[in-house]
């Protein structure tokens, strides 16, 4: 038997595979397609204090090996989430990680405070990296001082849950916001969110998405994500002993194993879940096959074991 379990700041996962925010809804949408009880943890769609209708259509467009989206954090709002979705999510028997966003530092603090007292959840993930909303979101993620402010405010309100900060890749040096988040009290770091992107309709000579610009996800961004995860793990999070949750274009077990070798403790699957929900399980099975084939007893044996020449 291979031990696939990992630990993220005290949060026990049966295996290192989790959903990525915004790509698995509130879990009930996927019930007919995949047994989510078999994954390591579930990360919800980003929740805001008030419901959000989201951006105008079109919101998504495929590009070469990628998906550009500008959904705009459409969600049912915190109250409806707590009343309607928490009961369903708690049936999964998994660590539940709630992704949150706010328009102001105070909103991040307030929503974290409300979630801190909800027994059914294990962690709060601060989405400070959504590129598709006019206020908040990425504005916090692109400035290290703002990253520190938001993280510190949420930290103050977060006493019982693991606090995860999700970084934006749209920065010059990813280690700067990573360091800011860790110094401000993040228990774990997750990266990367989508890369700023756009698509132009050349016949209309107009941006394709109603929001004009969006965020790129999917296999196209995997090597970029891997590079950033490697940088954060090797120069900031690793030395600080802070676990990293890696995401960005994972589609196969090979992609996930790359993240683990680079130093990530867990790996989230996003766009690929929307194409093939069972890929969450298949990637996990593939990691097990890899470990067996290389005679490892635990997945923890390979985390951050990138070999030097």
């Amino acid at each position: 038997m291979v031990d696939l379990s990992v630990d993220i700041a005290g949060m026990k996962l049966a295996n290192p595979i989790m959903t990525a925010s915004g790509t698995a809804g509130y879990a009930d949408e996927l019930a007919d397609f995949v047994n989510l009880k078999q994954i390591g943890a579930f990360v919800t769609k980003t929740i805001t204090l008030e419901p959000r209708a989201g951006n105008a259509y079109p919101r998504v467009i495929e590009t070469a090996s990628g998906l550009v989206n500008a959904v705009g954090l459409a969600n049912i709002g915190l109250d409806a989430f707590l009343a309607e979705k928490i009961p369903i999510l708690s049936e999964l028997g998994l660590p539940i990680i709630v992704s949150v966003a706010g328009k102001t530092v105070e909103e991040y603090r307030a929503i974290t405070e409300r979630l801190d007292s909800v027994d059914a959840i294990s962690a709060v993930e601060l989405n400070i990296s959504c590129p598709n909303v006019s206020e908040g979101g990425i504005q916090f993620g692109m400035d290290a001082r703002q990253v520190a402010k938001v993280t510190a405010a949420a930290r103050q309100a977060c006493n019982r849950k693991v606090l995860i900060v999700k970084l934006s890749p749209n920065v010059t040096d990813i280690t700067t916001p990573a360091r800011a988040a860790i110094e401000a009290g993040a228990d774990a770091i997750s990266l990367i969110n989508t890369l700023n992107a756009m698509v132009i309709d050349i016949e209309q000579r107009k941006p394709f998405l109603a929001n004009r610009t969006g965020g790129l996800s999917g296999p196209a961004i995997h090597p970029v994500a891997l590079y950033m995860v490697y940088q954060v793990c090797s120069s900031v999070a690793g030395p600080a002993g802070v676990p990293v949750i890696a995401m960005g274009g994972v589609r196969t077990a090979r992609d996930a194993i790359e993240f683990l070798l680079a130093g990530a403790t867990a790996v989230a699957i996003g766009t690929a879940t929307m194409i093939n929900p069972t890929c969450l399980i298949e990637v996990c099975d593939g990691i097990r096959d890899y470990l067996l084939e290389h005679n490892y007893k635990s997945v923890r044996e390979i985390i951050g074991t990138l070999q030097d020449d």
Binding site: E29, L30, Y57, P58, R59, V60, N69, M274
Partner: peptide
Amino acid sequence: RIMACGMGICQGCAV
């Protein structure tokens, strides 16, 4: 409508 998933997850196909 252009949709990414067909399962109500991506929220792309808004009407």
